[in-house]
Design a protein around this nucleic acid. Sequence first.
DNA 1: TCTTGATTTGACCATCTGGTCAAAGCAACG
DNA 2: CGTTGCTTTGACCAGATGGTCAAATCAAGA
Lengths: 203, 203
Amino acid sequence: MAMPVGRTRIQERNRATILDAALEVFSQFGFRGATLDLIADSAGLSKPNLLYYFASKEAIYTELLGTLMTTWLDPLRALDDIGDPRAEILDYVHRKLQMSREFPRESRLFANEILQGAPRIEAALAGELKDLVDEKAELIRGWIAKGKIADLDPYHLIFSIWALTQHYADFDVQVRAVLGGADPFPGADAYLELMFTRLLERQ
Amino acid sequence: MAMPVGRTRIQERNRATILDAALEVFSQFGFRGATLDLIADSAGLSKPNLLYYFASKEAIYTELLGTLMTTWLDPLRALDDIGDPRAEILDYVHRKLQMSREFPRESRLFANEILQGAPRIEAALAGELKDLVDEKAELIRGWIAKGKIADLDPYHLIFSIWALTQHYADFDVQVRAVLGGADPFPGADAYLELMFTRLLERQ
DNA sequence: TCTTGATTTGACCATCTGGTCAAAGCAACG
DNA sequence: CGTTGCTTTGACCAGATGGTCAAATCAAGA
């Protein structure tokens, strides 16, 4: 019994509640480790009620992944040729770190999916994601050619931004344990600003 | 029926086989997502046979984590005041990247554990790990005070090394998808060398 | 109020999962 | 060969898990 496309307020609200609860659980335990009971409890709904709104556990998961993939790549999409190249890249770093702070569960959901071998988004990685990165790598290459930024491998530059910013969401527990519980983000923001400023300078 | 401390060759071999299979499965699915049946299949042993060598699923997992924690921190332990500070740190980066290439499963196991909130190693993070990092941060602060390397937050410097190097193990599928399947490591090694060289230079 | 369609749930099911156990297999030594 | 102790396994169990279904509840318009 598939949900009709036109949704009532109740449907809208309950689907949102379920997706939020599912994000909570899937981001912590991954697809296999998550259970419908955990999601149902977290959503405050009964298990059969979950399955009234979504066809299966898998359906909830893929809906989440699909929706988030778009949002998650928005900061990279916003990287363009309009402003100063170095400021553009630094802005991207800051936006990405901001997302780690505001949406750590989304970051962890992706991390979990990739760790498990990305069985459900491998196609999107090799398609949508690769295309976007290829395009932005070309943009960066142009900046390098014009001498606007230092000569760096654009792909690894992008990877390094992902790695550094997402680390603060995905490894939050570890970072806080080492820092004795202090908020890592102000320090991280300053450090990354400095790091990429120096890196991008022409020598 | 606990295993005796003195082990026969068969016990040694089977325990090793089981731990290897468990590493394979736990690193992909996390503790909750992994099953004894998967581990048993991967090890080529029967499930009751696994439980002849280890008391429980949990026992296998914690044994793995404990053993690996030590190995995993060895490169950081090796960071000392003997050579040139910049070379020391660059060495650490290279060693850590090397580990990502050689032991990606170990890296993913830790990533999975941390993602799940580190329920089984939180104590080690706040104890052993924090102590080690505090010690090395102090060492780095000394180098900064003596003007040997640029002025950087030592904690975030260490986090950035972890983030950048482990990314190539934990997000291997994504990195390869974006690169169209090419081996990321040579490029990563060169990029990280450049990145940290520039970062550590006194300005 | 009555009716209709959307929503919710208790009871249930087949399969999976961690774990047990008694019995069988096997290696080695006397 | 027979005994002894380590090793392996088939059968089994209780609880968890994804999912179904018919019946009950509820909201809102006629």
